[in-house]
Structure formats: C-alpha cells, structure tokens
Write a protein that binds this DNA or RNA. Structure first.
Lengths: 335, 335
DNA sequence: CTGAAAGCGCTTACAG
DNA sequence: CTGAAAGCGCTTACAG
C-alpha cells in the first residue's frame, strides 16, 4: 500500500501542497483559515498520513540521523553507552544508527563511509588504532564528529573522555597504601591512548611511591584475551598467591582474570585483592564483590550528544575535550 | 563544505547528469565511450564524490535502513542479537537503526512511528505486551516486519522463534530425572507468550512425571527483579536448601537468583542445582559453571534478516514462523 | 554513444 | 488568506 503524501491531502482537501505543508508543520506567519486548517488535519487523519522524512531531509539537508561507531555493540560497556546515547538522542529528535568496528580500521572506514552516505547529521565514534587519517578526512569536510571513550593524538576532534591517567594514578595509590607484596597491572598491548594513559597513571604512582613495590605487568593482545590472561597469571601469581593485588584496566580483562581466580580457588580478598576499570553485570556473580572504577556513562552520553548537537547546528573546528571523572566504587574485593 | 553532487561532476566533465549516473552506477546497456567513463571517474575522484543515499532513497523508495526495536539494547541478550543482525544486515547493504522500548507499548509505538517516518525498509522487533494493535496497523499497511525472540497471538506477522515450550519441557524432564526433592521455576508475571510457553513446558513435564515432584513457582514483576527474586527465594528455598533445583526462565532472573545463592553461601550443585535460559558473561564468574539453554543467535539473526529481506523485495502477508531449537549446554551447576 | 526531462515528497521564498 | 513554482540530488524511460 502506497502511503499518502502531502499531494494526496492537497488534492482531497482542495488546497495547494504549500498550504498543507504550512498547516501540518504549524508554521506561523501564514494566517490560514481555521476551517482550512481543520479540513487539512481531518484529511491527514483519515489518510493515516505520516511525513516522509527522507523527502524532508533532502530538502533541508538534515537527516536527523546520528551514527554511532563502537568497537563491538555486544560489549557491555558499549551497549550501555549506546543505551544512554539513545535516550539523549531521542529527546533531541535524533535516531541512532549503529555499527561495530571490531577494532579494525578498514571496517571503521567502511562504516564511516556508509553512514556519511546515509547523510547522518553527525557521528559519535570510539576510534580504533590507525584511524587517524580517516577521521582527519571527515574533519576536513567539516563533518560534525565527537569521539567517545577514546581519543587520538593529533586529530583535532572534540570528544568526551575519562580522566584516565588521574583516576589510574589515585586508585593505584589507594592500592599502594594497602602494602601489598606484589601489584600486578593487567593491560593490553595497544596503541590506544586511553589505555596507555591508564598504564601511565599506574606507573606514575608506582614510581612516586616511597616504599619498594614489586610491580608486575601482564600485557595481552586482543585475539585471545582469556587464554593469554590465564597463561600469564599462572606465570606471574601462580596457584597460591599471597598479599597480592590485581589491577585490571578493562572489564573484559577483569572477567578473564577473575575466571582464573575462580578456577584455581584463589580467595578474594584473602589471597588476592582486585580492582578493575568499568562495570559489568558479571561482577555480581563473583563471590567477592568487585571494586571497580565507574565511568559516568549517562553524563558522558549527555555531554557527547550536546557537543555533537552543537557542532551540527553551528560547526566550528575544535578539539574541545570534556573530561569527566571516574569514581572508585569500593567493595569487598580489596582487603 | 558542501559535498559534490552528480551535477558538479557533470558540469566539470562536460557531460549530462544522466551519463554520470549511468557510469557511476555501472549500468549496462548504455554503451558509453571508454574515455567519457574514465573522465567521469577521474572527476568523481578529485571531487571526493560520494552518492547521497537520501536522494536515491527518495527516488527508488528504498532507504536501505532497517529498524530494530528491542526491550533494552543494554541487555546482554539483545545486544548480542543486535550484533548478529548488524553483521547480516551489512552484508545485504542495510544499516541498522535501533531503539529500546523498555517493555512499554507507548514507547514502542513512538519508535515504530519514528522508524516508519525515517522510511526504514523493514523492521525487526521484539514486541512488548499490549502492542498487538500497533503491529496490526503496520501489517495492514503491508510494512515488512519480522518479530524476533517474542511473538504475539493473533497478529499475522512472520517471525523467528525459539522452540520455547519443547525445550522447556525436555530440559525440565532432564531435571526431573535427577530426582530432586524440590524444583523451583523462576519466571515473570507476564503476558508475553514466549515466557508463558516456557512455563507451560515446565508445567507439562512436571504434570506428566510419574514420580511425585514438589514443584514451586516464583513469579516476579519487571520493576524490581533482583529484590523480588531474593525475597521469594528466601521464602521458598531458605538459607540452607537441600537437593533442590532452580529453573530460571531468563538470564536476568538467573543472575538475580545466583546473587542470592552467593550471598547466602549456598553451594552449587551440592545443595542447589541450577539451569537457566540464555547466556550471559556473568555465568563465567559464578563458582560453578552454569548449565544453560543456548539460543542460536547467529542463526536467528540470519533467518530474521533473510525473512525480512524477502518481505521487502516481494511483500506477501504471511505469519510464517521459523522455529529454531535451543541447546542445553550442560555444565557443573547440576548434580 | 549521449542528453533532456520528469519525478520521488517535501520546503520555502515570493507573489498576489 | 492561499498558491505557483523552484529546488534538494538522484534515477530512469524515452528520444535521438
């Protein structure tokens, strides 16, 4: 069934399409007769008329579509971000189109191209390693863009970010003060700046410490997180660790590490204390509630959408970064 | 910066827009001179031309957009579905626009309206209670639509579904054979058919059983799942249950229930055995690996997209349901 | 081998 | 108080 158009309404109501458009969009300054208005609304109603936004988009060059590119929408962290963004976007009349990059620059570029062809009004992206040029090209075209979660050195894009270095530093200090024999940082081998910043924060606290700390590092790739974490933990803390702290730089790493602890019946916090970046529902089922760094997702979404909406309505090249603070949520996983 | 249009290319290459369109879309049957083609490609390249899909959409009445409405995109189950759908959709040249209904029929309708105005070519929806009329209206307009995860009685929509009743029946039987003193079904107070089917399957197995089974039911609302589950479990199994089995009809319920077990140091499977519908990463961190019913998400996504794509290219009113089988993944949580 | 022209469903400056 | 007309960026049947 073909849907009714403004033309159909005009024909049936016996007026011009212009008048219909004015009335339906409630444009002021076109003093149109009350009875004409009423007639138009009636006809629109009986025809079940709904506007074709595609046509409107073509005309005003605004699609009311926002593109969201994350690493993987099935990841807890990103699906929560997506949910928060969805809520905020909807309030401003935008709908979200989503894509997962799988940390792959080529796929990332394909999504950017696709979304740009779909004429999204702006994009919110979690950049992947090696996508600097892709983003730069977009910015050169004055495309409204906001980065989220991550940020790239040398790319002049606005974004909302976490105070990764600072929160890593203070939370590491918190661990140091507990006088562990050994503190293990579990992170990714990566070029992603936000992760490097977490590591730098950790390193800084360790270095500044007056006491002597045995700091170890477990660094894994993205391919086989669980397997690598387990193998490395075996080497670094073994089956029967004592007075040791684990610092996980992401929820995925934490889940992998906690799995190891479970399998080897290592007690938390009696033998090992645990601190992790980011939340995940999984923590709920670990015998000891996990101490974690909570990112203010709702606020992030809010700021990201605001930033983007501003860019859309009034583009200005800027690399304005909004930095939000993580919160350490202290639970029983630390002695 | 305004993006280049086909018109710009035509002007610079000194040909007509029609020719440009033919060449860039590689339309056959328009034997166009090789040098003209080359010229056009060159100009397109230097202008960084990318097609405006909005304009194309308006012309051929195909937006290449698919709407996905789930209860909540931040829920593990739905974000996994979304991810699988995204992959399949991309392969067919579609992009996904998403919305969360929060189990709210009004919000569901708003999303339907919005997506329909955005001219999505079709929708994949997990219906909410009370949305029968909304979907029926859509179907009356011959809107391509596929339901997923859930299904509504009396609405003539195609969909892909799980064999909820059967899998619930056989898995309950599996529990019954283990001779528990008590079997507790944990479900939702709901009108959602797929959940009722799970319950019916459970009830059927209990009823058919030759042995006498003490079957109990914990039914909770959607408002405060965790709180209600904990309170009811306290009443039904107490702090020190023995030879009891818990049958959770969703992963959310399972997480809530397992939390209760953890908090009360109830041993799985020594005291209580556990079986749950659907996966979630959280199971990984429970001391005993959880036995669960795995839905074939990838296959579901595949079938849903195929069904929808078929409806889009050749609409036929149908209530064709594709039923896929769940798999019981047996782990250590059952004695 | 190529182009002029209509049309997709809207919006909006202009005219009356 | 209302309408004729141009135009957004494409596609495509038709003509030559």
């Amino acid at each position: 069934m073909k849907r009714a158009s403004i033309k159909d309404i005009a024909r049936i109501a016996g007026v011009s399409v212009a008048t219909v458009s004015y009335v339906l969009n409630k444009k002021e300054g076109h003093r149109i007769g009350e009875d004409t208005k009423k007639k138009i609304f009636e006809v629109a109603e009986t025809l079940n008329y709904t506007p074709n936004r595609i046509a409107r988009s073509l005309q005003n060059n605004k699609s009311k579509l926002l593109g969201l590119i994350v690493a993987d929408i099935s990841n807890d962290f990103y699906s929560s971000i997506a949910r928060n963004l969805e809520n905020k976007a909807l309030k401003l009349g935008y709908t979200l189109i989503i894509g997962s990059s799988d940390e792959n620059a080529e796929k990332f570029e394909k999504l950017i191209d696709l979304f740009s062809q779909q004429q999204v009004d702006g994009m919110i992206v979690a950049p992947v390693a090696g996508c600097e040029d892709i983003l730069q090209k977009l910015l050169d075209r004055n495309y409204p863009l906001v980065t989220i979660d991550r940020y790239l050195k040398g790319v002049n894009a606005p974004g909302v970010i976490l105070n990764n270095r600072e929160i890593a530093e203070t939370t590491t200090q918190f661990l140091i003060d507990k006088k562990f024999d050994k503190i293990v940082y579990v992170g990714y081998e990566t070029k992603l700046q936000h992760l490097l910043d977490r590591q730098k924060g950790f390193e800084a606290s360790v270095k500044d410490s007056t006491s002597d700390i045995d700091a170890k590092y477990i660094m894994v790739g993205l391919e086989n997180i669980s397997g690598e974490v387990h193998a490395e933990m075996e080497k670094v803390i073994g089956k029967n660790p004592k007075n040791t702290a684990l610092y996980f730089s992401s929820n995925k790493l934490a889940v992998a590490g906690l799995e190891y602890l479970i399998k080897n019946s290592i007690k938390v916090p009696q033998q090992v204390s645990v601190l992790a970046f980011d939340e995940t529902e999984a923590y709920k089922l670990f015998p000891a509630e996990i101490t974690y760094i909570k990112q203010p997702l709702e606020e992030m979404a809010d700021e990201a959408i605001k930033l983007l909406d501003f860019q859309i309505s009034d583009y200005t090249a800027t690399s304005k970064k909004i930095t939000l603070s993580g919160d350490l949520i202290i639970k029983k996983s630390i002695k």
